[in-house]
Design a protein around this nucleic acid. Sequence first.
RNA 1: GCCUGGGUGGCGGAAUAGGUAGACGCAAGGGACUUAAAAUCCCUUGAGGCAUGUCCUCGUACGAGUUCGAUUCUCGUCCCAGGCACCA
Length: 863
Amino acid sequence: MDQKYHPRKIETRWQSTWEETKAYAVQADPAREKYYLLEMFPYPSGRIHIGHVRNYTIGDVVARYKRMCGYNVLHPMGWDAFGMPAENAAIANNTHPARWTYENIAVMRRELKLLGFSYDWDREITTCTPDYYRWEQWLFIKMYEKDMVYRKESYVNWCDRCQTVLANEQVEAGDCWRCGDAVRQKKLWQWFFRITDYAEDLLEYCDRLEGWPERVTTMQKNWIGKSTGAEIEFPVAGTDEVIRVFTTRPDTIYGATFMCLAPEHPLVKKLSAGKAQQEAVDQFVERMSKESNVDRVQDNQEKEGVFIGAWCKNPVNDRKMPIYIANFALMEYGTGAVMSVPAHDQRDFEFAKKYGLDIIVVIQPEGADEKDIARSEAYTGDGVMVNSEDFSGMANTAGKSAVIDYFEKHGIGTRSVNYRIRDWGISRQRYWGAPIPIIHCDKCGTVPVSEKDLPVVLPEEADLMEGGKSPLGVLDSFVNVPCPACGAPGRRETDTMDTFVESSWYFERYCSPDCDTAIFEPGAVKYWMPVDQYIGGVEHAVMHLLYSRYFTRVLHDMGLVDFKEPFTRLLTQGMVCKETVRCETHGYLYPEETQYRGEIPHCAKCGSPAEVGRVEKMSKSKKNVIDPNALVENYGADTVRLFCLFAAPPERDLEWSEQGVEGSFRFLNRIWRLYYRWIDRLGKTKPYTGEPSSLPDHARELYIKTHQTIKKVTDDIEQRFHFNTAISAVMELSNQLNVIEPEQEDPSIDGVMRFALDSIAVLLSPIVPHITEQIWEAMGNESGTLCRRQWPPYRDDALSSDTRVIVVQVNGKLRGRFEIDANADDAAIKARALDDPNVVRFIEDKEIKKVIVVKNKLVNIVL
RNA sequence: GCCUGGGUGGCGGAAUAGGUAGACGCAAGGGACUUAAAAUCCCUUGAGGCAUGUCCUCGUACGAGUUCGAUUCUCGUCCCAGGCACCA
């Protein structure tokens, strides 16, 4: 054992050992209990960043821990390799997206290996390979056959910068989730997955995902957005047409005074044709079509609309209601028509005020005067129904159901449920994605590619044009194929699939990554799935996690898997943050562009003092990033791993601190020196594992502390993944060991000392696997066996010492403490408490009302 | 506006069934070793008070409440972060 700790030397050695011996390769083994641990695979953007390091370190600790607990652990890694950055980078650097992607993968794979993660690299998946997307195309065809995929022309979210369509989930506050540019509406033919078919099931199971953070399931519930109410038919006066509306407030039907249609509603043209209002209507529709949905639905956008020159009748009382088109009515939600009740809906209220429409109060809160309701704003709360014929006097909560019963009895409307979630649009007008396996034929329409012709390989020729248009459309050799159904000349679909499709089933592919006869081997999936613990960023709370749940249901209903939920437990780790530094002239500064003069940072470019800004998520734009490779180079992977775990519990944000990293490095150095001090003496000593009672006092104390530490670390990892407190516990133990000088101890301590030192190595091994493996070997254990060692049990009879510290309170205030034999009875404890000199000061001359004795903890004397 | 989290020393964070608030680490200050520095080791460190103690008072965003006892439970208020938002 070297006297000094040389992390890089040790880490290189163990990493190559693990690689050569395939130490973490696994096979399905029905005789053993499995544990599938998965971290969200990365997009190969170029380099590993610190967020990856944190995510994968958390996962690696759990994987190593579970392995030591005897589980057969599947812990794979791969690459979410299709996507637009590859294409953009290819255009910018005049290279090919494939080349850019594969080069990045090579770099990032090396970086991951430098961190010592225990992946089964034999199972590596790269989603842009035909071996992988072949099965995605196969699944697409199966879904097509089951009518789970369809094509329609619709308005879609379009990003001009990315030159492609975005799913609703991929639009953030009106901007593209990837590049941040404004999204506009464009009418296009698109492929869709019928995720809405599963809206109810996905929603219902949200409450059964007990291993998921509540905020994630809440976000999914909000996204699915279920509302219950009624669908009602309003006849249009003087025609045979009816307008169908969805409402969550059937109880306000008697207050409906006008109707609002979305500008795109099919009846708008028909009903306004030939009317005096036609021109105004056409103008309004034209104007709305130029505004994106997102703009139309912007914050506090003024409500506006146009009367279309037609009326409909309220089916419950034949009231004549003017029909408007309104900017706030959206064709995509419900039926595209709103029954407007201005007294009880804020939008309708504002609209009615602006256009002088009738406002009728039909819900009255307890004790309120009807005249005071809906004067300055709509009343949206509960109350008693009024002005509602036979329903007047009924509580509106009960009225909702009663009114729908009435509708159903008279054929006016029915009970109905609406969801906010839309079908998942997956067409992307880009090159670097999985081709959609469809051929367009003039005679047969859209025809799926036959299974034997899969994969539809993405052609290599890629003359990517500025602006990112897909080259597939102009590649005759790709486009021109015969129709699989009739043989006539056909044209291939040139859209590629959304990259979220690849990540919706990769976790199943990991179970049998090389299977070339099926999407996966049923036995392998049956054994490994579902994922026992999934770990990743909360930014995927809706998109990736919802899509994956949907895909798993599709596979379930095809009989390919026997479970509906892919991820039993989910951990969403917090972001890695760091303070930002800004120079007045040079803007944000990278850490290496910042020079510290004392406490004050200065700009390295101009030398003027720089301003320290708030702590924010690490990002290139804020330049508050750090390079994991440089850290590994300076301190070693173990230090980086240790700091990522120690600085904060996993689900919380982590504030990066260079001094904190130093502290972690110092701790590992202390551990190294601790072993170095004892190695000659204890190299051949057997660890003591017997009962504590036969040990001399100070050895017993150490023995107990060690067992307490084992229990603490086990519980912290097992129950809560709170590695920070687990590490603290080991630090406490090592602090205690550090003050023991070998020269001053007689051999009676040796067995316990050896046990304590061995325990530290084992307990820390999932966290810092390299240094622990090295000291394990140096202490005379068989080389390389630590990572396969059993997780240590603790002795229940060695968890508590023979004495207890009891604290004494007087009226709940701490007044004294004493040590007493652990099996002293309440009377003895009480007597000691009343006898304590400081306690006596507070209780003398006073009457004691009550004495509360809490076993092993405290005495409270109530005066 | 609605829905989730969260607010504890100079800082990151502990306190896992209502029972010693501040574990562990960082930073800071003092000391030892050294020609010196680095490294290492030791001590101090929530605020305030004096009688300097096995001392007292205050203290977990703020205000109430339940309790012998509340960082922990209940109600109300404020602030921060994330998500959703003309969804009929």
